[in-house]
């Protein structure tokens, strides 16, 4: 397969799924479901950023909620001082990218366990700063009365909100798929698979890591800006370590570096529980238990199960590929 076909193969299925979800939400959603559809879209964006970073870089980022918070607060503050809302996404992306750049530069030489711990710490620092810089963020009470795109969500404007967020999802998907299939993405995976080999062909590992953290952060910042312009209210608790953990968990459950998997797992583990109005308590419990079980038996998540199911169905129903077992189903000796 050449580059553009590979791009389409990773972009189209996930984008089509998003389009179907958005369309279903446009056609059938009442006010509550529209709200769920919007929030799920935000989750998908956050999870996509995390999934891209973890999957291609092979490192865990545990501060997506922090970048999300920075994007949200900065665009909210600027809007409260008169910036028009349609600039918010650009502001969110910029703030996220800048903070990702700072974090990436600080952690250029840190990898593996250490990077996970450092980013966890940075995420908690952001949450603490949002709480403590009371002169700017209004502390734990939060920012009230932030301008929104189309006013409070109601039957009249719910379609606009859904189009904006799911449109953003598809744009993000396209950008990440382009990056993944570009030279940059291949170099990243080379570094992930063997740092020594990648260094020996002249790749600067630190630079690629900084760039990936920046991309993931920019994506989270965009999600923050979109969320602000829907909610109109921000409190630091929204951007806690718990959210970073959930984003990581959703990305892992979907299958690291599988865009389709990321979308499906956001729908299954965030959208559906909200639709069914499951309390946060059960949602958390299901999350934890499913994550533990999945890591034991299918560490590459829903996408691994999907690949397995497809190959099984092919063999059973059509007798295809009987001689060539799928890589995902074979254990290495």
């Amino acid at each position: 397969m050449n580059g553009s076909r590979r791009f389409l193969a990773s972009f189209l299925p996930a984008a089509a799924l998003c389009a179907v979800v958005a369309l279903a939400a446009l056609l059938f959603a009442d006010a509550y479901l529209a709200q769920v559809a919007f929030l799920t879209g935000i989750t998908v964006i956050l999870v996509l950023g995390e999934s891209f970073a973890v999957g291609n870089m092979g490192q865990l980022l545990m501060c997506q909620a922090g970048f999300y918070g920075i994007g949200a607060y900065v665009s909210a503050l600027l809007e409260m001082h008169g910036m028009p809302p349609y600039l918010a996404p650009a502001v969110g992306i910029t703030c996220g990218a800048v903070s990702g750049l700072v974090v990436g530069l600080a952690a250029t030489r840190i990898r593996g366990h250490y990077l996970a711990i450092v980013t966890l710490a940075i995420g908690v620092i952001v949450e603490e700063l949002l709480n403590n810089l009371q002169g700017i963020t209004n502390g734990p009470i939060g920012l009230v009365g932030v301008p929104t795109f189309f006013g409070p969500l109601n039957a009249g404007n719910q379609a606009d909100y859904i189009v904006v967020v799911w449109g953003a999802v598809i744009v993000v998907l396209g950008c990440l798929a382009l990056l993944r299939e570009s030279r940059f993405g291949w170099f990243l995976r080379a570094i992930r698979d063997s740092e020594a080999a990648a260094e020996s062909i002249g790749l600067r590992i630190g630079t690629y890591q900084v760039a990936t953290v920046t991309v993931a952060a920019a994506v989270a910042g965009l999600a923050g800006a979109l969320y602000t312009n829907y909610a109109g209210l921000l409190v630091p608790d929204l951007f806690s370590y718990g959210l970073s953990a959930q984003i990581l968990a959703t990305a892992v459950l979907g299958g690291i570096n599988s865009f389709g998997g990321a979308v499906v797992s956001s729908l299954v583990f965030n959208g559906v529980p909200q639709m069914a109005q499951v309390t946060a308590f059960y949602q958390y419990l299901i999350f934890g238990v499913v994550l533990i079980v999945m890591m034991q038996f299918a560490p590459r998540g829903l996408s691994q199960i999907g690949v397995y199911a497809v190959s099984l169905a092919r063999r059973r129903l059509l007798g295809w590929g009987a001689g060539q077992p799928n890589a995902a189903t074979v254990r290495r000796p």
Partner: peptide, 10 residues
Amino acid sequence: LITSVGLSMA
């Protein structure tokens, strides 16, 4: 590490 995040939630 990932599994312990799930354990902590559970």
